[in-house]
Simulated scan of single mutants.
Amino acid sequence: MKIVAVTACPTGIAHTYMAAEALERAANTLGIKLKVETQGAMGLENTLSARDIAQADWVLIASDRPVEQQERFIGCRLKQVNLEPVLLNALAVLKALQHDATA
């Protein structure tokens, strides 16, 4: 399974990057291929390419604010969550996507 994700918080500092790290750890545990774009105070980092998005089984947006360039994800399997569930239990968030992919 391959997931691309975007993380963003209102101030674009700590929670943006904490969520990205939590998702990366959880993906490693589950054997999921993951690429995370952060939309933080430094702007867009690790930007998702059109190819990344097209090859993904899921697009996960973990954000407490609107993300930039969301139109890139039209037509994709998209799941939007607030940052809190990712920060509290990223493993459960990714497991839910795995389950939804097989349902």
Results as ranks from 00 to 15, higher is better:
46 N>M: 07
91 L>C: 07
21 E>D: 13
6 V>L: 01
101 A>V: 05
70 Q>N: 15
33 K>S: 14
4 V>I: 08
55 Q>F: 00
75 G>E: 03
95 K>E: 13
13 I>W: 01
26 A>W: 09
85 P>C: 04
39 Q>I: 01
60 L>E: 00
11 T>Q: 11
38 T>V: 07
14 A>C: 09
14 A>K: 04
47 T>D: 02
61 I>S: 08
37 E>V: 01
22 A>Y: 04
93 V>Q: 03
36 V>P: 14
94 L>Q: 00
20 A>R: 03
84 E>G: 07
78 L>K: 07
28 N>T: 15
3 I>E: 03
62 A>S: 11
10 P>M: 11
44 L>F: 02
2 K>H: 12
45 E>G: 09
32 I>D: 11
25 R>F: 12
23 L>Y: 04
101 A>Y: 12
27 A>W: 07
88 L>S: 09
23 L>N: 02
72 R>S: 01
95 K>M: 06
83 L>S: 05
90 A>K: 04
53 I>G: 07
47 T>F: 02
13 I>Q: 09
89 N>R: 13
77 R>P: 00
46 N>V: 10
76 C>R: 15
20 A>H: 01
59 V>R: 03
97 L>G: 04
11 T>W: 13
40 G>N: 13
80 Q>Y: 06
76 C>P: 00
98 Q>P: 11
72 R>W: 06
24 E>I: 15
97 L>W: 00
102 T>K: 12
27 A>K: 09
55 Q>Y: 03
71 E>N: 10
84 E>T: 15
18 M>S: 11
2 K>L: 14
52 D>C: 09
66 P>W: 02
100 D>S: 08
26 A>S: 13
36 V>H: 00
65 R>C: 15
100 D>N: 09
59 V>M: 06
81 V>Q: 05
9 C>R: 15
59 V>C: 02
2 K>Y: 06
66 P>L: 09
77 R>Q: 14
90 A>C: 03
71 E>T: 13
